[in-house]
Amino acid sequence: MTEAAGVEAWKEQTTAFDRIQSVATAVSQPQSASHIAGEAHVAENTARDHLKRLVELNVLLEREQDGTTLYGPDPLHTRVQMIRELLHQHDRDSLIELKQSLQSQIEDWQSQYAVESPTELRDRAAETDTAAQTRDIRQTASDWELISYRLSIVEDAIENYNTYSEDAPVSA
């Protein structure tokens, strides 16, 4: 009953295209049109049309596997979208401050756990005494990966600031 209520609310507030885009750009591995249609509560034929459109728009990538077309997010599109979001929110100085803050967080973890990477930290999870400690370490390793990825996006935004910024001069 509650599951149906959630789906109904989703349908009321979004279009079929919105739902297909949201579901397809969030999959962690490429999926078939049938799978995406089921998750998005959209008829399969409609889903196929929307997925093709999203491929044309370079939001998704498609490929064939065992005779089935699979769809997944285009990592380049996602990355550019994140850079654009950062440039909306920050000027160059503020991006540099953000970069320093992310670097400091990573250095703190390196120093606190005496490891160089999230992978090394995950290995530490095998040596803990309690389930709570294991969970904490695994969660920190996940946060570390996310922040490293975020740092790479911030560095891209700084490097290309003059080209991508809204304040960049428009060429004649």
Partner: peptide
């Protein structure tokens, strides 16, 4: 088209996409 969607899995990028999608759907909720 090839060089498709799963040639290299990146857990951080996949997690960020998920968080982005969650944020977008939450914004749509009344």
């Amino acid at each position: 088209m090839m060089g498709g969607p799963s040639d290299g899995y990146d857990s951080a990028a996949a997690s960020h996409r998920a968080l982005h999608s969650i944020k977008q759907e939450l914004r749509r909720h009344p």
